[in-house]
Design a protein around this nucleic acid. Structure first.
Length: 336
DNA sequence: AACCGCACCAACCGCCATGGG
DNA sequence: ACCCATGGCGGTTGGTGCGGT
C-alpha cells in the first residue's frame, strides 16, 4: 500500500525555509495557534505541506527552543536516558527542556555515538564491545608505544599504563557482571547467583565502598594525588561478595579506584526497584547516599516512555561520562 | 586557489498509533 | 469492525561550511 508523501501534491515547496516563510508561520501560529496542521499552510499563505510546517515549528521556530551547544549535564542526561530508553528521542527530549528530539538525535549521531564507539562501547547497549574492532584503539595505542615513550618520561608512562590496565580490568569485570545477568528476565537469577538488579546494585556498592576507601587514602596521605600512589596505598583492600553462593570475588584496588572515579558522584542518578525496567548499562548509577534519585520510578509510565516529572540536579559535579567523554586526554589515550 | 573529505544539522521520508466518522 | 485523516516518531538524506592538502 503506502501513502504518497504529503509533499508530492503538485507545487508544494520543499527544502530549506526562507525567513519570509518562517515569519508567516510564526505570525499565524502566534495569532491562531496551529490548529489543524493540514489546513494551516493555506490559511497562513504558505506553499508548504502541513507536515513540513509542523516540523519547522516544532524543531526550529517554537519560542521555547534552546539553541547552542549541549551542556555537560545535558550530555550526561542523554547518555543516562539512552542507556535504557534506547532511541526514544522524544522520550529523552521530555527530560531536556528546550531541546527537540531531532536535535538530541542529531547530537547523539554526530557526537555521543562516535565517542562511545571510539571508546570501545556498543552505542546501543552501552556495554564494552568484545569484537576485535573494539580493541583496535588499544592495539593502535600499543603500536604507537615507541612514539609515546619518546615524548613522555618513564614514570609518567608507568602511571599511564597502570591507569590503562585498571581501565581494562574494570571494563572486563563490568562486562562479566552484566553479561552474566543480561540473558535472564528482570529479577531472576543468573549463573552467578546474581539477579540483574543485584549485579547492578553490586556495582553501586563497589562504588560506595571505594568512595570510603578513597577517602581514607586521602586522609592517610593527602599528598598522594596521582592515581598510581592511591592505587598502591590501598592495594590490600578488596570487596567480598559474601552473599553469593560459592563465589568469592576479590577485586583489586586498582580496579576499585578506577570504578570509583568512573562512576563518580553524578547527580543524574537513576533508581530502580526490582519491579522496574532493569537498567542494562553500567553507566547508570543508582542513587547514592547523599544524592537523591533524579529520575525515579515515577518518571516512567507503563509504556516505557519518560514522563516529565523528573528534575535534574543543577550544577552537578561531573559524573562518569563527562569525566571521560569530555576529557580529550582520555580519548587521546584510548584512541591515539 | 581549487579540490576533497568530513562534520554538522535542518529537513524529508516512511511507518505507526490514535481517534473520529 | 473498518476506513481514513492526522499527528508523532525515528531513520535517513542532502545542503552547507570548514579544515586539510
Amino acid at each position: 500500500m503506502g501513502r504518497s508523501p504529503c509533499c508530492d501534491e503538485n507545487g508544494l515547496k520543499k527544502g530549506p525555509w526562507t525567513p519570509e516563510e518562517d515569519h508567516k508561520l510564526v505570525q499565524y501560529i502566534q495569532k491562531h495557534g496551529h490548529g489543524s496542521w493540514r489546513a494551516l499552510p493555506k490559511l497562513a499563505g504558505l506553499n508548504r505541506c502541513g507536515k513540513s510546517c509542523r516540523l519547522r515549528w516544532t524543531n526550529y521556530l517554537r519560542p521555547d527552543i534552546k539553541r547552542g551547544k549541549f551542556s555537560q549535564e545535558e550530555e550526561q542526561t542523554i547518555l543516562n536516558l539512552h542507556s535504557f530508553l534506547g532511541n526514544k528521542w522524544s522520550a529523552i527530549a521530555t527530560h531536556l527542556p528546550g531541546r527537540t528530539d531531532n536535535e538530541i538525535k542529531n547530537f547523539w549521531n554526530t557526537h555521543l555515538k562516535k565517542k562511545l564507539i571510539q571508546m570501545g562501547f556498543d552505542p546501543m547497549t552501552h556495554r564494552p564491545r568484545t569484537d576485535i574492532f573494539s580493541s583496535l584503539s588499544h592495539l593502535i595505542a600499543l603500536a604507537n608505544l615507541k612514539d609515546v615513550m619518546d615524548h613522555h618520561p618513564w614514570e609518567e608512562h608507568a602511571v599511564r599504563l597502570q591507569a590503562e590496565a585498571a581501565q581494562v580490568a574494570k571494563l572486563q569485570y563490568i562486562q562479566y557482571l552484566l553479561q552474566s545477568s543480561s540473558p535472564v528476565p528482570t529479577g531472576s537469577t543468573n549463573l552467578t547467583g546474581l539477579t540483574d538488579i543485584e549485579a547492578f546494585n553490586l556495582l553501586n556498592s563497589m562504588k560506595e565502598q571505594q568512595n570510603i576507601s578513597n577517602l581514607s587514602s586521602q586522609l592517610e596521605s593527602p599528598n598522594s594525588g596521582s592515581l598510581g600512589l592511591a592505587t598502591t596505598q590501598s592495594f590490600d583492600s578488596s570487596i567480598s561478595f559474601s552473599h553469593l553462593p560459592d563465589l568469592q570475588l576479590q577485586v583489586p584496588c586498582s580496579f576499585q579506584t578506577s570504578l570509583s572515579s568512573d562512576f563518580g558522584q553524578g547527580t543524574n542518578s537513576v533508581l530502580f526497584s526490582q519491579e522496574e525496567a532493569t537498567p542494562t548499562s553500567p553507566w547508570l548509577p543508582t542513587s547514592s547516599l547523599n544524592t537523591p534519585p533524579l529520575v525515579t520510578q515515577n518518571s516512567f509510565n507503563s509504556s516505557g516512555d519518560a514522563c516529565s516529572t523528573s528534575s535534574y540536579g543543577e550544577g552537578a559535579p561531573s559524573a562518569f561520562w563527562p569525566e571521560l567523554l569530555l576529557d580529550d586526554s582520555f580519548l587521546h589515550e584510548n584512541i591515539a
